[in-house]
Design a protein around this nucleic acid. Structure first.
Length: 505
RNA sequence: GGCCCCUUCGACUAGCGGUUAGGUCACCACCCUUUCAAGGUGGCGGCACGAGUUCGAAUCUCGUAGGGGUCACCA
């Protein structure tokens, strides 16, 4: 990367506040952030709100919050301000007006007065004749006088880029070298809309220049329109940033991840119990790899070893299964138990659970951790730890039936224990199994069913110890009275999702 | 369709002229085991195709095919 190397690195993410915070935004932000940090530069968050039709007032905050959640904190943003304020494009309109006028004066742009209907007609004609662009540039022929006069008379107009029409424009992309696009393919793009608000094309170029952005990192989807931006830099006589068009995140069909079709919302991942560290790590491996091949690494390590040279251009399929694998790893092996428990709280709370003391919560999380991949699953599978009214699954009922006499015996054996630590309980149960000469499972399964209402749960001894002596005996008693009351009709309460509560749903 | 980008196991990737093409997810099997998991071991599976260049191509060049992106007063 040869140009701009004398200036401090400035990167930016410029989301448009139009809906759910998109994972693609996080993906680009990650590389913006990492590179800026590595180079001792700045990472700017700018709000690209020039589309008033799709503007969504809540969206801005959600994007900012999502970035905050991820820990990709910008050095400048509408929220924290900075030397380049304001950071919302609708608050910078005079700036664009000024530069649009400059382009008009220098002949690099022209006014066009066609109505939307006329444009539609032009587009149709062009299409019929097999010509690519949506506009034929006819307004370029207008005389300066006519243009000024019609504008002054209040007629609506847009300002369009006057493209060369011949030759080619070269985009020096840092990842793929020189990309040459024939100027005949470059449209006279609208720079300034009739409402006086700029389009992305003008706004991004002006802001990137004014804010000193040195590296324009963005999705590959922008490559086809990059000539418009290059032409604009040339028209202004400004030095271009280093263009870095990143590969796209794709869905399972290989198509660009879209918020309409796909689950691409950061809020959604959060809600599913994905932890930000895991998301970031996963995202980092999409198109980039650590030099030593490690797949788990922190932001800090990534910052140390990152280079754009190791970006692969294929475009990666966003695989929820793999994300979950990363998440599980972070939950189990990276974050400490206290942290996981702390982060699990909102999920438990919204499931309606109440944990008495912290130690109990810690025990529950600890024993469930190998069985879950997300925090949401933790909440889903922990019902019997927080709810005494759990019901018995069909399979559990069968186990209960088959083991009634063991339950009765165990109730006696366990109630005799003075201490209820792991070894005490374990010894007692093993002794019982031995004395009865039965298989472990024959005893353990009914007990498990009694304690949890399911047949798929942590080790019975763990369960008993965590629940404590009183609760353990209570639940055994409850199971016995349930059996005595007659199995077929005694349907327990709490009908919802009990059939496989505790199973891996 | 035009233009542009891309192409290693099903998925994420390592590889940057000489490797039995390596790792991870998923999947399968086995081990461990009181269930389910976790963990351990092993297995399945790939250089899109065709020409060149070269003593030698996954690696370089060209072509073909396939995939994707984009063609708005949206970003």
């Amino acid at each position: 990367m040869s140009q701009n190397n004398n200036k401090p690195v400035v990167t930016r993410i410029a989301p448009s506040p139009t809906g759910d915070p998109h994972v693609g935004t996080a993906y680009m932000s990650l590389f913006d952030y990492i590179y800026a940090k590595q180079q001792g530069g700045k990472f700017i968050l700018r709000i690209e709100d020039t589309d008033q039709k799709r503007y969504n007032p809540e969206s801005e905050k959600r994007v900012i919050d999502a970035l905050k959640w991820l820990g990709l904190s910008p050095d400048e943003s509408p929220e924290i301000g900075g030397p380049n304020a304001p950071y919302r494009q609708t608050e910078r309109l005079e700036l664009y007006q000024k530069y649009a006028q400059q382009l008009l004066d220098s002949g690099h742009a022209y006014r066009a007065f066609e109505t939307p209907e006329e444009l539609e007609q032009i587009r149709e004609d062009l299409q019929k004749r097999g010509l690519g662009q949506g506009y034929d540039g006819r307004a370029k022929a207008l005389s300066k006088e006519e243009s000024e006069q019609r504008a002054a008379s209040g007629e609506a107009f847009v300002i369009r880029l006057a493209t060369p029409g011949e030759g080619e424009t070269i985009i020096k992309d840092a990842l793929r070298g020189e990309v040459r696009i024939p100027n005949s393919e470059v449209p006279d793009a609208v720079l300034m809309k009739s409402d006086g608000i700029p389009t992305y094309h003008l706004a991004v170029v002006v802001d990137d220049h004014v804010m000193g952005v040195t590296h324009a990192v963005r999705g590959e989807e922008w490559l086809p329109t990059a000539p418009v931006h290059v032409l604009l830099y040339k028209a202004f006589g400004w030095e271009e940033p280093i263009w870095i068009h990143m590969p796209l995140l794709k869905n399972a069909d290989g198509k660009k991840l879209s918020k309409r079709r796909d689950d691409a919302s950061l809020d959604s991942y959060k809600k599913q119990g994905i932890v930000p560290e895991a998301l970031l790590n996963y995202l980092a491996t999409m198109g980039w790899s650590m030099p030593d091949g490690r797949e788990f690494f922190s932001l800090k390590d990534m910052t140390k070893f990152f280079s754009f040279e190791r970006i692969s251009l294929g475009g990666s399929v966003f695989d929820m299964k793999r994300l979950r694998h990363y998440n599980a790893h972070y939950l189990r092996d990276v974050l400490d138990l206290e942290t996981v428990a702390e982060r699990a709280k909102p999920y438990l709370k919204s499931a309606g659970y109440d944990w008495g003391d912290e130690d109990y919560l810690l025990d529950v999380v600890d024993v469930l951790l190998p069985r879950i991949e997300t925090l949401a699953e933790l909440a889903e599978q922990s019902d019997y730890f927080f709810n005494d009214d759990f019901s018995y699954s069909e399979d559990a009922k069968r186990r209960l039936e088959a083991g009634q006499k063991h339950l009765e015996a165990l109730e006696r054996e366990l109630s005799r224990l003075d201490f209820f630590d792991y070894d005490d309980v374990d010894d007692a149960m093993r002794e019982y199994v031995k004395s009865e000469s039965v298989k472990m499972g024959e005893v353990m399964m009914p007990l498990r069913a009694a304690l949890t209402g399911t047949t798929q749960a942590p080790g019975v001894t763990d369960l008993a110890v965590i629940l404590g002596k009183a609760k353990t005996l209570e639940r055994i008693g409850r199971a016995i009275s349930y059996l005595e009351a007659g199995l077929p009709d005694d349907k327990p309460q709490k009908p919802k999702k009990e059939e496989d509560a505790g199973a891996n749903t």
